[in-house]
Design a protein around this nucleic acid. Structure first.
Lengths: 334, 334
DNA sequence: TTGAAAGCGCTAACAA
DNA sequence: TTGTTAGCGCTTTCAA
């Protein structure tokens, strides 16, 4: 294996100069720099991360904690994170956290404490109080995304505003009888995102002078099947059905669209449906949605991490963007 | 930071003994072992991976190369890999490879050569000849999954058999006029999976005495929208439409089901549809499919990697399982 | 079964 | 701007 001394010898400088040149830390004259770079590239030299980390304390590796990996939203966020970190020469240490207590413990108590990462990104994950404390004890920058985590810097979207935007779109089209498909509060975990979306929904209704009705809420589990079933319940009675549905995720919204069709209803003529997320499938189904740009969210949190590692002044927790994307699943009521 | 000498001092042994105890390498008497473990746990000591890697040459870190992350199949495979590696105390270094030449080059020329990983898993990815060579030069175990990569050990499913299984299911139901939705060969990359699936399809037909017809093939791009459009082309003419469709992926099959419904056709009464993959959405749509168990594929390849690192005799490239899952999208022709 | 000590391959403080 | 050198915190050989 070619080491730093091989490069030093070939460039006729000391190993210190090689190190300074390749790391960009410390002064090196242009000519020397040239020679070193040339020697390194001739030899195909790559710094040993173990040796470099041990000596410098820096790993150029970022730990990324994700809950489920195989749900579109999270994998999309991860794509954004990985692309951004890789572009800056950081490696991604992926920790897929399940609900299993032992595994989680091992990640927090051991994996993350091995001095293997320079920082930790927490993606849309509710953490226990002691887990947050353990992250803090790491003495590393930690940035969360997708939900406020007490004591951690977080990048979040304003869920209430997201829901308000979706609801106001329907109200603006003239709908007055709007139902909401969301998660049962009992199951929502620590982020209260479903609750916030419901609050935004109800706030928008109230402001428009429409009284929220409890029979206009249907609980589901954020899956297509769940959205389908919830929508079926809301729509099956032709006498009493709402003219529009706001589903708290695109997958549920798509399920709702399919349910409507099965009931012989046309979307949007008979019922308007809007979702949240910006799911890949939205375009195919013609789903109007409030796009959260999950890929961009990932890029943003990764950039924030890179900035933190550069010692940049850490900006205050910033809100993430979202935008209404109008397609063909919403229209004025008949 | 608590180091190995702190533990050694507290346990009243040498650092060598602490190292031997915690790594499980080399003899340690039960009593000593006890004392060391106790001291380590009292102090909350965790080995520094940088120091350990530098001294031992082992990193307990596995590089995982994936193409797109945000497609269900790959994220499911990754879930299996991550769970299995984590369970054995390995970290996952995730490298999301795009088509971008510079980025790819950096991963192969630099990231993977930093001595940061003990082995590399390649997920369903076509690699250039020189990329494979670079992996070989690493001097590490490399295992590919999801497609034969010349010169690399690979775990693959027998794609021809998969297609044959799907086709035989339709033939067994009595269908004789079966269409296939696959990828245009022009776009299929180096794995020839779409071609293999088509070959299996045609082989099954021929064996059943049905002559393959070129007008019974429709090209698509492995998305739901693509499957939808391809199926629309196949089904729109009531006179000439096939009685069954075998789509080379579940997402395309679901798109085909939706297309059939839009054309006023009932599935499976008017047309049977079968897919391949075992996609999460298959259950919701009642899709009959040949399940490839992608999560299990990930577990298998990770286990193979762990075995390779333990120096186990490397078994010959093994075939991965698949199984027909019958749901409600297939039935005998009317 | 244990300990002493020589590295592992770099980085960074310090001196020149 | 460059070089010398002392670590970084472990593992492993060798000797006891």
């Amino acid at each position: 294996m070619v080491g730093i001394d091989d490069v030093a010898r070939r460039a006729e400088v000391s190993t210190a100069t090689v190190s300074r040149t390749l790391s960009g830390r410390g002064p090196v004259s242009p000519t020397t720099r040239e020679r070193v770079l040339r020697a390194a590239s001739d030899l195909g030299y790559v710094v040993s991360s173990a040796a470099s980390s041990l000596a410098s304390g820096r790993t150029r590796n970022i730990g990324v904690l994700v809950p489920i990996l195989d749900r579109w939203f999270f994998s999309r966020v991860l794509t954004g994170i990985a692309a951004t970190l890789q572009r800056d020469g950081y490696d991604v240490a992926l920790y897929a956290l399940t609900a299993e207590a032992d595994e989680r413990r091992r990640v927090f108590a051991t994996s993350l404490r091995r001095q293997r990462v320079d920082g930790v990104i927490v993606v849309s994950m509710a953490l226990a109080r002691d887990e947050i404390a353990q992250l803090g004890d790491l003495g590393l920058p930690v940035i969360a995304m997708g939900g406020q985590l007490a004591g951690l810097r977080s990048l979040t979207v304003d869920e209430i505003e997201v829901a308000r935007t979706a609801t106001e779109h329907l109200l603006g089209l003239g709908h007055r009888d709007i139902a909401h498909i969301g998660l049962h509060p009992q199951f929502e975990g620590d982020f209260h995102i479903p609750t916030q979306r419901r609050r935004g929904f109800e706030a928008a209704l109230s402001e428009a002078g429409v009284a929220p009705r409890t029979d206009r809420f249907a609980a589901a589990d954020f899956t297509m099947a769940g959205g389908h079933d919830a929508a079926t319940r809301l729509l099956r009675d032709a006498e009493t059905r709402p003219t529009a549905i706001f589903a708290a995720s695109d997958e549920m919204a798509i399920g709702a669209m399919l349910a409507a069709r099965e009931l012989g209803l046309r979307v949007p003529e008979d019922v308007s449906i809007i979702g949240v997320d910006g799911h890949d499938l939205g375009e195919f189904f013609g789903l109007t949605t409030v796009d959260q740009f999950p890929g961009r969210q990932g890029e943003r949190v990764a950039s924030a991490m890179i900035a933190a590692l550069r010692g940049m002044a850490s900006e205050p927790p910033a809100d993430l963007d979202f935008a209404l994307v109008e397609r063909s699943s919403t229209a004025p009521p008949a």
